[in-house]
């Protein structure tokens, strides 16, 4: 098993599949009356969050606690982190505390890579800048597989601000590894150079062939930087509304990593439709993160 999860590129097909299978076992566990496993008793998992992300932090915290780990939350607010302590000094503190795993969310791309060179424990990237968010990709892949029964050969459209999206980067890598075909859709200004997947600027032409549509959050501040002229024009060209949703095949699902801008990239009736996996993505997040912690910290599948 790999030691750190810094990028979805760290996962080959076998490892990724093992994590998804393990996530399935963890999900089954959640159905039981006693939801805790003793697997990580006595192990310490630190949530090191330099960005506010209650959703992701709570998901990791729940995952670690269901595995009986001791959880320490180290957040940017109300700690030495906000007083400008360097990442390296924080790493040395965590090292002294004997952290077995550090889950890090950071606004700077690559911060988890840096951290991994300064601590002995496992480092799990919970989102770094505009780089990656590999556990999000795992929970997304898990969700697709649960709904559609497979990943190999699926057509997945990822729509929106790909340029600034760590979710998109991790999904492209993981889904490609697992045999899905990814098409990135958005205005040319929001598609990076050499994105490693097919690209389309025309959402309507992509929808009829899509098994999965993943809508990315688009920040309206991007308008100020001229990535697109207005929220209205963005929404008209790249938003998923009810009319567009009808262009999808019967079985296709609609995903969103959250938090959503209802009315911007996704219409409320789409977000709340039966195609939408948005609520189960949250539940699957805990299972996928349990699987990652379990496997990285030496649990045997």
């Amino acid at each position: 098993m790999i030691k750190h999860l810094l990028s979805a590129a760290d996962l080959d097909a076998d490892t990724a599949t093992l994590i998804l299978d393990t996530a399935g076992e963890m999900a089954a566990l959640a159905e039981r009356e006693v939801k805790k496993l003793p697997t990580l008793r006595g192990r310490t998992v630190v949530n090191l969050f330099y960005e506010d992300s209650t959703r992701t932090r709570i998901s990791f915290e729940a995952a670690a606690k269901r595995l009986s780990a001791d959880v320490i939350n180290f957040s940017a607010k109300g700690s030495s982190v906000s007083k400008g302590e360097s990442l390296k000094d924080t790493a040395l503190t965590l090292q002294a505390m004997g952290a077995d795993a550090v889950v890090i969310r950071h606004p700077a791309s690559g911060a988890p890579d840096r951290l991994s060179s300064w601590v002995d424990g496992s480092v799990i990237n919970a989102g770094d800048g505009t780089h990656e968010h590999p556990t999000q990709a795992l929970l997304d892949a898990y969700t697709m597989r649960s709904r559609l029964g497979k990943l190999d050969g699926l057509n997945v459209a990822i729509v929106g601000d790909v340029l600034h999206s760590r979710v998109a980067r991790s999904n492209v890598l993981l889904l490609t590894t697992l045999g899905a075909k990814v098409t990135l859709v958005g205005p040319p200004t929001l598609i990076p150079l050499s994105p490693g997947a097919a690209v389309s600027y025309d959402l309507d032409s992509v929808l009829p062939g899509a098994d999965v549509v993943m809508m990315l959050r688009v920040q309206t501040e991007r308008m100020q930087d001229s990535y697109f002229p207005s929220a209205r024009e963005y929404s008209r060209r790249y938003g998923l509304d009810a009319a567009r949703m009808r262009r999808l095949p019967e079985h296709a699902i609609v995903m969103h990593p959250g938090p959503m801008n209802r009315g911007m990239e996704i219409a409320p009736e789409v977000a709340d439709s039966k195609r939408s996996t948005i609520v189960e993505q949250v539940a699957n997040g805990v299972s996928a993160r349990m699987a990652v912690l379990y496997l990285l910290l030496g649990g045997k599948a």
């Binding site: 791309s109 690559g110 770094d128 800048g129 505009t130 780089h131 990656e132 760590r166 980067r169 990076p192 150079l193 050499s194 994105p195 490693g196």
Partner: peptide, 9 residues
Amino acid sequence: GEVSTRLGL
């Protein structure tokens, strides 16, 4: 370029 895309920088 390709590397900046991959690294998210």
